[in-house]
Design a protein around this nucleic acid. Structure first.
Lengths: 150, 150
DNA sequence: GTTTATGCAAAAGTTTTGCAAACTA
DNA sequence: TAGTTTGCAAAACTTTTGCATAAAC
């Protein structure tokens, strides 16, 4: 699991004319971790410990900026909550209905995406797969077994 | 464009022990139209005219019930808004970034869905395609043309 | 020194909840 | 009549906004 090169992103954002404030860099570093899937609230809570002056508005502003500039994708797998993912490109996401965990999927689902569908111009696509994750299946199984023993 | 057979659903819900109230039937009828993609708010506003005593809480309760029982699917293509779709089965949805319109897609995207991915049990999947719809493309085109004439 | 971003607090918007009253079977 | 569901109003949550202050370049 390699570390993401956010210094390149910092350079690019600078070139685009953005001010690289403390808050933005902190959020960028936090969010660029491999396989990270965070809500704005999670990012805020975690960074608030280290940067007590941080405000939730800044978190939302920065996440919007990073999404707009193509460094994050917004995952709308969970109603009423946007989750941010720094792994780019069309890749399916798995959502556990039991524990809410999100996982990137890299295989088994193949998608052919045309630039045009029914006369509409296609720009991006998201695939969301719902079910029960490995860990929750294990828990359910051991629960069933202990019940059948009694 | 055929009309949906909601009387069958009414029968099934009765068999499952649900009370078939006026409100539930009205919402069911409203939502079962072909190619309908409604938010709770839209359903509420439209039915409120005919049934002034209807409350938004009942709309949410009923939509949740119908989703749980498998008669509706929740489309989370738009952040902060759940859209309900009575067309079942895995079918991709197209979302126009310009006008917000949602369209069912029945072709061009093929999906192979396994019952198991990375050890996780798969139960359902959603495919969301984002872009600019036919109508908005047309508007943009005519706008560009009229500008280049001046 | 000028411009841009931040933080705060309030607002906006969607969805949920608790409970008495109304309705369904 | 017993058991559910409804409607209301308030609460809970997420996200956005406006504006004075602070930070970045």
């Amino acid at each position: 699991m390699e570390k993401r090169d956010y210094s390149k992103i910092v350079r690019e954002l600078k070139d685009k004319g953005y001010t690289l404030s403390m808050a933005r860099i902190a959020i960028l570093r936090y969010v660029m971790k491999e396989n990270a899937h965070y809500t704005a609230e999670e990012i805020y809570k975690n960074l608030k410990e280290e940067y007590p002056t941080l405000s939730i508005a800044t978190v939302y502003n920065t996440l919007k900026l990073l999404s707009k500039e193509g460094y994050l994708q917004q995952i709308m797998i969970d109603p009423n909550k946007v989750i941010y993912d720094s792994t780019l490109g069309i890749h399916p996401h798995f959502y556990c209905k039991v524990c809410g965990k999100i996982e990137d999927i890299n295989s088994d689902i193949k998608i052919q995406l045309n630039k045009e569908i029914n006369g509409n111009r296609v720009e991006e696509a998201h695939i969301y797969v719902y079910g029960v994750c490995k860990d929750c299946l294990k828990k359910q199984k051991s629960k069933r077994e202990s019940l059948s023993l009694n």
